[in-house]
Amino acid sequence: MNDNERIIMDFIAAWSRLDADEIVSYFADDGVYHNMPSRPVQGREQIRAFVAGFLKPWTSTQLDMLNIISRGDLVIAERLDRTTAGERKLDLPCCGVFEMTDGKTKAWRDYFDMPTYTRAMTG
């Protein structure tokens, strides 16, 4: 496992602590977080606000790494995100594409099915 893969593994593990500040610390100052079904969010403060809003109803989450591969500053991580928000539970298959620079995430594009997430969390 190379350094970028290790950083992404640590980043994925950080989500289980539901701490937006810790999660955002993995991003470059001008980093971009793009949940592909939605608009991209750029800059640490904007990403922190977005992540905090996302985490607010969650009571627990565990992101299980299924596969991780990298080449240079590109890391691709396939996951199963297991999230609980009160009585609602969701197992969401995801694939994240990370562009790294100097040990930080410059861009993260996360691919998943938004209707699956929405049905489980609001339906």
Rank of each mutant, 00 (worst) to 15 (best):
I76M: 11
I76V: 15
I76R: 07
I76F: 09
A77E: 05
A77S: 14
E78N: 06
E78D: 11
E78T: 06
E78P: 00
E78Q: 14
E78M: 06
E78V: 02
R79E: 05
L80E: 13
L80M: 14
L80D: 09
L80A: 09
D81R: 04
D81L: 05
R82D: 08
R82M: 13
T83D: 05
T83F: 07
T83N: 03
T83I: 15
T83V: 15
T83H: 05
T84G: 04
T84F: 05
T84D: 12
T84I: 12
A85M: 07
G86S: 12
G86K: 05
E87T: 15
R88G: 08
R88P: 02
R88F: 09
K89M: 11
K89V: 13
K89S: 11
K89I: 03
K89H: 13
L90Q: 12
L90D: 14
L90I: 12
L90M: 15
L90W: 14
D91F: 06
D91C: 09
D91L: 12
L92N: 11
L92M: 14
L92A: 12
L92T: 12
P93D: 12
P93Y: 07
P93K: 06
C94F: 10
C94W: 08
C94D: 10
C95S: 13
G96L: 07
G96P: 11
V97H: 11
V97D: 04
V97P: 09
V97Q: 08
V97G: 03
V97S: 11
F98A: 00
F98V: 01
F98T: 01
F98K: 01
F98W: 09
F98D: 00
F98E: 01
E99H: 04
E99S: 02
E99L: 01
E99R: 02
E99Y: 03
M100I: 01
M100P: 00
M100A: 00
M100H: 01
T101M: 07
T101H: 05
G103Q: 03
G103L: 06
G103H: 08
K104Q: 12
K104E: 03
K104M: 01
T105M: 04
T105S: 01
K106Q: 08
K106D: 00
K106P: 01
A107Q: 13
A107L: 14
A107E: 09
W108C: 12
W108K: 00
W108D: 07
R109Q: 13
R109E: 10
R109N: 15
R109H: 15
R109M: 05
R109T: 04
D110I: 03
D110V: 07
Y111S: 03
Y111H: 12
Y111V: 04
Y111M: 05
